[in-house]
Design a protein around this nucleic acid. Structure first.
Lengths: 179, 179
DNA sequence: GATAATTGTTATGGACCATATCAAATATAG
DNA sequence: CTATATTTGATATGGTCCATAACAATTATC
């Protein structure tokens, strides 16, 4: 990395339409005045720093893989959770994803407007909305899973190896749950 | 996790001042209607999902450890990088941290107003501001490093073990750099 | 049957991120 | 050497995500 210092100068301000926002962030460190490569020093040993950067890269790659389905990580996680737990209401789905109820509304509005998910008034408790995947939602989720498996996870396996990938996820889960 | 179902009901709307925002996010999944614990299913195997949650936990813990010094992860990374690379300008520091120049201004304003960092007009190129740590900045950074080592990283070592912690950071670095 | 709690929702503000644009200073072309 | 282009720090602005307060409808509780 930190390839050329004066290579793609012209392609900065003129053409090159904004594309997705991830592109902009990716090029940030490279396109700006990346002169002689600074010393990261202890920064490269900081868990938080490397975690954040890895997370950004993974999300970026996820979005690229899902470009054809137009699913964000958050949307994908909602579909996965609703599929696994049909008949739950918004509060339950949102809270287990760490999403606050108010912020979950717009997210659901989006999925529902695309006919991927449906809100059904519960007969037991007419306050709550039961969530289910539509047929289209199920189909899209199936395709999404395949894309994730073949394009996203496969790439991680290439990079780390199967065993390391599993160890990584286990460690991250441990941090997420017990830290 | 997912401890009690009706334990701390009263402590939700009444007292319990907002405190830091991390507290609010942490309790989100627990305080809301966490009824019978949903099945995460494939979600717990999704790299992006577990990465994001781990990152939130780590940042949250970092902020707690740094409460006495009032340093965010971003501010800490700036101090570390400026210490390691004195005499660089804003563009260089910002870009290697993946921060866009416009957003770096307020960050620096903050550090400078607290007398941790100083902008010095370069004599070579009078457009650029050379960044250096003040004496106070160096002292604070030294204390910050100790806090991180004893409170933050030590906790990670307790959780994963020294060897695993190093393996984790190496894998995350690989993802951040090569994914 | 009156009060409290819950559900989904709206409104709102803050933090972070990204782009366009600017003046000053410098680099480069002709 | 002068005219143009580029770079640097900065401002303004809009978007997204996150967090809190408040509300109507509904349900639970006393």
């Amino acid at each position: 990395m930190t390839v050329s210092k004066t290579a793609d100068k012209t392609a900065e301000k003129s053409s090159e339409k904004p594309a997705d926002t991830a592109k902009g962030r990716k090029d940030a460190a490279e396109a700006q005045g990346a002169a002689e490569a600074l010393q990261l020093g202890e920064l490269s040993e900081q868990l938080g720093y490397v975690l954040k950067r890895a997370q950004l890269k993974v999300f970026e790659n996820f979005l690229r893989c899902m470009a054809s389905l137009q699913l964000t990580p958050a949307q994908f996680s909602v579909l996965l959770l609703v599929e696994k737990n049909p008949g739950r209401n918004q509060t339950e789905i949102a809270s287990t994803l760490g999403i606050l109820r108010p912020n979950f509304v717009a997210l659901l509005d989006n999925l529902e407007s695309r006919d991927l998910c449906a809100r059904i008034r519960s007969t037991n408790d007419r306050r709550s909305h039961i969530l289910v995947l539509t047929d289209k939602g199920k189909a899209v989720l199936t395709r999404a899973k395949k894309l994730v498996a073949t394009k996203h996870e496969a790439r991680l396996n290439d990079l780390l190896g199967q065993a390391n990938r599993e160890a990584l996820i286990e460690m991250l889960s441990k941090i997420a749950n017990e830290f």
